[in-house]
Simulated scan of single mutants.
Amino acid sequence: MDDLWLGAPPAQATFVFLLPNTPKLPSDANKAYLEVPNVAELVALNGNHWRKIFTIMAKLTAEDAAKWRYHRDNSLFNNIAITFSVDQLVDYKGGLFIVGKTFEDRLPVNGEPVYGGGAQLAHVSLPRVWCPYLDYRQFPNSLIEALRAYILE
């Protein structure tokens, strides 16, 4: 599954999230499904943990911060992608969220620290963002708001 790419193709993706763990996919998932995954179905297959991941992605990337729920449920994968391998990023030039510490050996952290209150922080050197795992304990709303100022403003 290292070559798994979910969501917008590299040429269309505004942001890619490089994640350390893959979700379960429907048994009948085909190329069309992988390009436009069904968020509700993935949450049903993988549980609340993946709902939180998609929610944080939506809060970070929604054009209108107040409409993140709609974005998560209806348009997240129109211009967002998820991959699970650095090797998948060879030709990708857009915004990249490097999630967690798994990929630090291949993509060392650099950039300006962005604090979200408390100990939570990310590092930004656009187009790359090194950030905590997409979980509310590690990635609170205050960090989401701080990062939005860097990536969307």
Rank of each mutant, 00 (worst) to 15 (best):
A119T: 11
W50G: 06
G7D: 13
F84D: 01
L25Q: 09
N30I: 03
A8Q: 05
L6F: 06
D91A: 12
G117S: 14
C131D: 03
R51K: 15
F97K: 04
E104I: 05
E41R: 10
L42Q: 09
A32L: 14
G118L: 07
Q138V: 01
I144K: 04
P140R: 07
G7R: 12
G7W: 14
L134I: 14
G116Q: 12
G117M: 14
F77L: 03
N78E: 10
P113G: 03
V43T: 15
L134N: 09
I80N: 10
A29H: 04
A29S: 03
Y33N: 10
N48V: 03
I82E: 03
N21I: 13
G7L: 11
G118P: 13
I56L: 05
A13D: 09
M57G: 03
I53G: 13
G95M: 15
P37V: 03
D87I: 10
N30F: 04
N78Q: 08
T14P: 00
G111L: 02
E63A: 12
F77T: 01
S27W: 06
L96E: 15
I80P: 08
L89P: 04
H71A: 06
W50P: 08
V39W: 01
Q12T: 05
P140E: 07
L147F: 11
C131K: 04
H123R: 02
